[in-house]
Amino acid sequence: MSEIRIRYTELGKSFARRRLFEDLSLSLESGAALLLGGENGAGKTTLLRILAGLEKPSHGLVDFGAGEVAWQRCRKILQRRVMYLHQAPYMFEGSVARNLELALPRGLSKSRRDEKIRRALEWARLDGLSGARAKTLSGGEKQRVSLARAWLRQSKILLLDEPAANMDRESQLRTAALLRRLKAARVALALASHNHEVFDELIDRRLLLEDGKLHAARAPALPENVTRLAAGRLRRAAKARR
């Protein structure tokens, strides 16, 4: 399996009235998991979407190992190679099986397709849900369908936006287990998450997006740090309001 390393540099995003972040650098590597921390509104989602080629940065360079290229020029490549999973994954009309089928190349024989779908259902612990209407699944089940789609598509780079949001503890653990298996299969992972202790043992590097900058944070002290930092800021903000 070919190893991947994408390095992003000088990433910046500004809106008409506000600068979200500026001059960020980070890299994604096969078999490595990156955790992106930071408060709501710090720009984690925007950053992930830029990494996936979905949202335009104000500035940015990308290096696939053959020299830096402007983000704009490799947007299509990013979209093709990077899989971004929305915080609330989108389910298309139809059954779970049909949603999984979408990730398979067309032209597969029916028996091959059914076999792959069956294995994906098994992989993602979705047994028995094959015929269920995907839009009616729970948050955790939808997350696993979207992971199964990524698995079927054999995505090498996976970005997850709050993968533990809107689900119970058991679903979080199941999601974490699937991510562990993807990591073992040398998929590059990046997670934006508040609520990350379920993913702790999976994470190799932690970055904190705060005030428009990325700070390296050391594991495993980060969670408490983040919580404390956030709490401190809330207190200060509350005081200022008074």
């Binding site: 996936a52 979905l54 979209q79 990077v82 899989m83 929305h86 989108y90 298309f92 979408l102 598509r153």
Partner: peptide, 8 residues
């Protein structure tokens, strides 16, 4: 976005 990322 989802459809495009699934390579459709």
């Amino acid at each position: 976005e989802t459809a495009r990322m699934l390579g459709i």
